[in-house]
C-alpha cells in the first residue's frame, strides 16, 4: 500500500479493484455452491439418481420410477426452494439495510407471519385456492408493514420501537394462524400445516411457475433500486445529498421487500429466519457493504442446504424445511439480542 502513496490514483485504483475482485469472487463461489447444492438436493436422498440418469430424464427419456420422482417431486421442490430462498434473502437484506437494524428482517418483524395468517384465513375461512392464496399473502404482508409504519411513527426515527412492535405482531399473527388451524377440518389442516413452519413438501410445477414469474418481475426492480439502497446506507441526509430521491426510493424498497417476502411465503410458507440470516452472512462473506446478489444467493443456499438436512435427518420422514432453518436461526437471533450493543448498526 505505502509504495503507492506517491501515486494516489493508482492507490485508489488498487483498493477499489481489490474490493471488486472480492465481491466478484464471493458471488461466483456462492453461485457454484448454490448450483451444487441444487444438484445434491435433486440427486441424493432416499432415492438416489445418478448424474447421467438425471441428464437423460431432463432430455425426455422415461426411466421408470426415477423419472416420476425427479420430475414431479425433487425438481419442483428444488426450484421452489432456490427461488423462495433468493427472494427471502434479498428481502431480508433490503429491510435490514433500510432500517439499519439486523433484527428488522421481514420474518422477525411479522411480515411473513402476516402473509401466512392471511393465506390461512383465506384457505380455512373463505375457501380460497390457487393463485388467490398468493394475493392474500401479499395483502397480509403489506398490511403488517403498513401497521408497523403507522405504529412506529410516534417514536420518531427509532427503529428499535418498530422492531419491538414487529416482534409482537409476529407472535400475535402466529397465534392467529395456529388458532385457525385448530378450527379447520383434518384435510384442510394438513394442507395448511405448511403455513405454520414453511416447507417445500407441497411444491408443484404450478407453484414454481408462479414464483418464477413473481421473482422474475421483482428481482430486476431490486437491482434497479440497489443503487439507491447503497446511498441510503449512509443515512437519509447523505443519500439525498448524493442525489437519491430518498422518500421515493425508500418507499419503493420497502414495498419491494414486503412483496418479495410475501410471494416467497405464498410458495413455501414462512420459512423461518432465512431472510434474517442471509444479509448478515453475505455481509460477513464480503467483509463490508451490502450486496443484494450475494444475499439472494446465500438465501437460496440456506434453504437448499436446510432442505437436504430436512429430507435426510429422520429416515422415512421429510421434515418441513422451516424446522431446520428455525433451529439454525434461533441461536443467531439470541446472540444478536444478547450482544445488543451492535443492534442498530446495520445488518
Amino acid at each position: 500500500m505505502s509504495v503507492l502513496l506517491d501515486r494516489p490514483a493508482a492507490l485508489v485504483r488498487s483498493v477499489h479493484r481489490a474490493r471488486r475482485r472480492r465481491v466478484r469472487r464471493t458471488v461466483a463461489a456462492l453461485t457454484v455452491a448454490v448450483l451444487a447444492m441444487f444438484l445434491v438436493d435433486v440427486l441424493l436422498g432416499t432415492y438416489t439418481v445418478t448424474m447421467p440418469d438425471f441428464l437423460r430424464i431432463l432430455g425426455g427419456t422415461e426411466i421408470p420410477g426415477a423419472s416420476f420422482i425427479v420430475m414431479e417431486n425433487k425438481l419442483p421442490r428444488a426450484v421452489v426452494g432456490l427461488l423462495a430462498g433468493a427472494a427471502f434473502g434479498v428481502s431480508g437484506a433490503v429491510c435490514q439495510t433500510l432500517l439499519r437494524n439486523p433484527l428488522a428482517s421481514p420474518d422477525v418483524i411479522g411480515v411473513t407471519s402476516g402473509a401466512s395468517a392471511a393465506a390461512v384465513l383465506g384457505i380455512v375461512v373463505l375457501g380460497v385456492r390457487g393463485q388467490g392464496v398468493s394475493w392474500l399473502a401479499l395483502a397480509g404482508g403489506l398490511l403488517v408493514a403498513l401497521t408497523l409504519h403507522v405504529m412506529a411513527r410516534g417514536g420518531g426515527a427509532s427503529c428499535h420501537r418498530l422492531v419491538l412492535v414487529g416482534i409482537g405482531c409476529a407472535a400475535l399473527l402466529q397465534a392467529v394462524t395456529s388458532y385457525l388451524l385448530t378450527r379447520s377440518d383434518i384435510r384442510t389442516a394438513s394442507e395448511v400445516m405448511v403455513w405454520l413452519n414453511g416447507s417445500l413438501n407441497d411444491s408443484t410445477w404450478e407453484r414454481a411457475a408462479h414464483l418464477l414469474l413473481a421473482t422474475g418481475l421483482l428481482l430486476p426492480v431490486a437491482a434497479h433500486l440497489a443503487h439507491g439502497l447503497r446511498g441510503l446506507e449512509l443515512g437519509d441526509d447523505a443519500a439525498a445529498g448524493l442525489g437519491v430521491p430518498v422518500a421515493r426510493v425508500r418507499l419503493g424498497l420497502l414495498l419491494l421487500a414486503v412483496a418479495l417476502a410475501a410471494v416467497a411465503t405464498a410458495a413455501t410458507g414462512p420459512v423461518a429466519f432465512v431472510a434474517f440470516l442471509s444479509g448478515p452472512i453475505a455481509r460477513r462473506l464480503l467483509g463490508g457493504a451490502v450486496s443484494l446478489p450475494a444475499a439472494g444467493l446465500v438465501g437460496a443456499l440456506v434453504v437448499l442446504a436446510a432442505e437436504l438436512v430436512a429430507a435426510n435427518l429422520v429416515p422415512g420422514a421429510v421434515l418441513p424445511v422451516g424446522v431446520v432453518t428455525g433451529a439454525l436461526g434461533a441461536p443467531f437471533l439470541l446472540w444478536l439480542l444478547v450482544t445488543g450493543s451492535r443492534v442498530g448498526r446495520g445488518g
Binding site: 483498493v15 439495510t97 446506507e233 443515512g235 447523505a238 455481509r283 467483509g287 463490508g288 446495520g346
Partner: peptide, 9 residues
C-alpha cells in the same frame, strides 16, 4: 451526523 455501515472501506 452521517453514518457509515460496518466494513465499508
Amino acid at each position: 451526523s452521517p453514518v457509515a455501515p460496518d466494513g465499508l472501506t
